[in-house]
Each structure stands twice: as structure tokens, then as C-alpha cells.
Amino acid sequence: METKTRIILICSGKGGVGKTTLTANLGISLARQGVRTAVLDADFGLRNLDLLLGLENRIVYTAQEVLEESCRLDQALVKHKQEPNLSLLPAGNPRMLDWLKPDDMQRIVSMLTDKFDYVLIDCPAGVEDGFKNAVSASKEAIVVTNPEVSAVRDADRVIGLLNTHGIKPIQLVLNRVRPRMMASQEMLSIEDVTDILALPLLGIVLEDEQVIVSTNRGEPLTLTGSKSPAARCYSNIAKRMQGEEIPLIDPSKEGSGIRDKFRRLMQTKIF
């Protein structure tokens, strides 16, 4: 039977572009909207999702014990205290990588399906086994990239692989956007990236120091109701996932001073 649960892979190819931060913030944001959300840490080699959510001290069992049937799923799920609609299924020991197969990922995800409205899978970087296992259990994908050549190139590779796995829809999140650099054309524009990758844009996330501060605390920006630039972006994305029509933040329109106007003039495409 077709399930309504949305099983979304959050992937990028290149490492360090912001997958885990996005997963944590979307997880919290969706939960705050009242939908039952599970975040699954599929980065078994270098798990971090627990840390970003501030749940690292509450882990008893992991996906590993669930798969080995030495505990039940609900024993391994860590419910977020402030946002009980959100649960984390932690990654097990890195040695799981030695035996984990696509079948195992599919088994875990099918256990989560129907208990939740959303299953967000935090994918490891790369396109090797970890990625393949995670893809095999996913239906949709969000590709995260930065406005940089290497991140865009790797995203392109991943999109090709997602297509061959029949993942649909695939949407794009452009992270670490710096309006100033884009305005002076020292950074690929949003249009450049969406044109090159030919994916619908789910949203952009502005470069924001508060991301690091929130990571230090283990409290995602969307948890604290912060009004910082990245916080606004994350919650806009979560609302769009829920079908709300929220206009994109246009970095080139940020600022209304004479210098910003001049920058925009210089940016106008002549041909």
C-alpha cells in the first residue's frame, strides 16, 4: 500500500556543505508545525546529528540494536524534550559500515514509515556505499549545495545518481549564500546554480554566524524561534515542504541604500 509518509534524503556529494545542519533545523521546524517527524542519522561513519540536536547524552540504543533485534524501535528513538513531535534514530557504531546493506536501510525506514509523517535521512558525504544504502531507502531528495564550483559539480554527480535510482522529486537547497559577494559577482548567483543543476529551488540559506553559535549549544536555530537570517530561511523551507507558498528571500534585494542600488545596476544582464 502507498504510504503518505514522506521519506526524504538530504544529500550533497561534497562534504561539509550543511546537510546535517539542514536536517536538524528542518526536523525541529516541521515538528513545531505539528507533523510527526523522524530524523535518521545515516552517516554511520561520522555521526553528528545527535550533537546538533543536543540529544547526544540521551542515546541508549541505536539503529544497530534495532537491526540486530536486541531492542525495539521505540526504545532506540530519542524524543526531543521541547519538541516531542521530533524523534531521532541515532546511527550505530561505525563498524556497522562493514555489514550494512541497502536491505537493512530499507528495513529501518519501513519501521519508521506510518509512525511518522516525515522521515528525514541525513546522508553521508560521497557517492559510495553509505550514500547508496541511504538512497535505496528514500523516495524524495533534497540536494544541498553551496555557491562554489566544487560543491555544484559534486551536486550534479549526485543528481545524476538520484535520477538513476528513480528518486522523485529532487529539490535544491542552496546554503551559505553571501548577498554581498553575490552582488559583486564574486559568487555564483542563485540563478547560475539553478540553471546549471536544473532543479527546482526549495530554498536558500544565508551564511550566518548564528549557525555556529546554535551548534555550540546543541539548539538548532529553529528551536529557539531565532529571527537570525538562517533561522528565517530554514523555517521558510519547512513551510514550503508543507505546501505553503513562501516567496524566496532575494539576496540581491537585501539593502536599499544607494550602494546596493548601484550594485544591482552593475549586475543587470545586458546580453
Binding site: E148, V149, V152, M182, Q185, E186, L188, S189, D192, I196
Partner: peptide, 10 residues
């Protein structure tokens, strides 16, 4: 601009 170069190279 380096963005144009980046676009072409990509």
C-alpha cells in the same frame, strides 16, 4: 568577475 569564470568552468 570570478562568478562568470566559475559559471563557464562549471
Amino acid at each position: 568577475s570570478s562568478a562568470s569564470t566559475a559559471r563557464e568552468r562549471l
